[in-house]
Design a protein around this nucleic acid. Sequence first.
DNA 1: CCCGTCTTTATAAAATCTTTACACCTTCTT
DNA 2: AAGAAGGTGTAAAGATTTTATAAAGACGGG
Lengths: 233, 233
Amino acid sequence: MSTSSSLSTSSAEILVIDDEPQIRKLLQITLDSNNYKVNLAATGKEGLILAANHPPALILLDIGLPDISGHEVLKQLREWFTHPIIILSVQNSEQDIVTALDNGATDYLSKPFRTGELMARIRSSLRHSQSDNLSSIITVGDLQLDIVARVLRKNGEVVKLTATEYNLISLFVRNEGKVLTHQYILREIWGVGFQSETQYLRVFVAQLRKKIEDNHNHPKHIVTESGVGYRFC
Amino acid sequence: MSTSSSLSTSSAEILVIDDEPQIRKLLQITLDSNNYKVNLAATGKEGLILAANHPPALILLDIGLPDISGHEVLKQLREWFTHPIIILSVQNSEQDIVTALDNGATDYLSKPFRTGELMARIRSSLRHSQSDNLSSIITVGDLQLDIVARVLRKNGEVVKLTATEYNLISLFVRNEGKVLTHQYILREIWGVGFQSETQYLRVFVAQLRKKIEDNHNHPKHIVTESGVGYRFC
DNA sequence: CCCGTCTTTATAAAATCTTTACACCTTCTT
DNA sequence: AAGAAGGTGTAAAGATTTTATAAAGACGGG
């Protein structure tokens, strides 16, 4: 996966998947002038192939594609592609946005967009995905996650976790401050097909809380968002 | 993308569709002196033709037209026209207003109206249609909605909201400045079939106000439009 | 076969949603 | 301008859904 080393902030490779020629043109010019290497795909199928053959540092994906739905492309990409995917969608399609975020989109932008804003988002997303990779230790409050060693520490002491527990806390830590829906978590940890097994999640969240919270009756790290999911702080 | 650039705030083109000569005259003078370019249509048919031949930045539409009903004009316009349409209606025709808003009107004004208020509404609508580029963080006054993280902040602090409360404030924030009818809100949040449950809405608006308004007896954000719906500012 | 881990079941507790009741405020009528 | 009528705000009780937790059963690697 991380063969595709996103180099220093500029000169990173970006894959654009969009069926509208004028948008592709605009993005090509804009990204080019910002020192990104650009690859273009006009269809979902083409995008999937290009991404697989030559994994970019970031993907810009139009959700309204003609051949395969952008949502489907996103799902297939997310089975292996861990770098940022920014969604482009037409205005006011709230449902599209929610679905896309639930399917693992990093961020989104509504068309029409100002190119300046797009560039800011690209920079921000790349910065994030880099710092994820570079510093293998992420610290949140009294917790430290060592991604390379696959170890969690609380106040310096190793917390003994099972594989699933580790995967879960890792997902939480990497998405600090963001509400993760039950479905999203289940898909990330257990895989597609387990999205209705919310009870698994409850059991493992309870176990994690016993191990990482000072007072597991008043959890400060793993916060319940009733009816939606959990948020890690 | 931004091909249909409505120019800088003034000198934008406005199309007035109204059968009453004295209203047309008044609007012509008022708009003119505010640096808008004005086109006038006396009938619905004429208005549709003018709009199609030369799309304006905003349309002022009288709902009580003699030839085609204003509602019909609105519907036909909304099949392709995405810029603001402000409705003018006679007093006491709340049903007309609600229907128009449901059909995609941006805002409404009851005749007789103060020209100052009309200008304010026009400015507000134009400002919106220019920058309705939803970014993943939308700021309105002291509130910030982070759609990606699914979190609302007030002065930087996270506001604890239930799922329904969040859905509601999200709808409001994404439609800032626009009147949302009870029916529309109920349909968006609870789904079709709940459109007569206006009491739900009152309860949840009250709860939201307690959480986001400085003084919930004098709400500044969620404003009541009596008989019609709510407007978020 | 044993041990650690995952899955499933059961149930108590918590949070949220719905409904009711009533006071209050607007708007319209006279 | 006063009263009536209808719309709105709020608290709180009841109903429902969602969540937490323990503990039993199932599974699989060594």
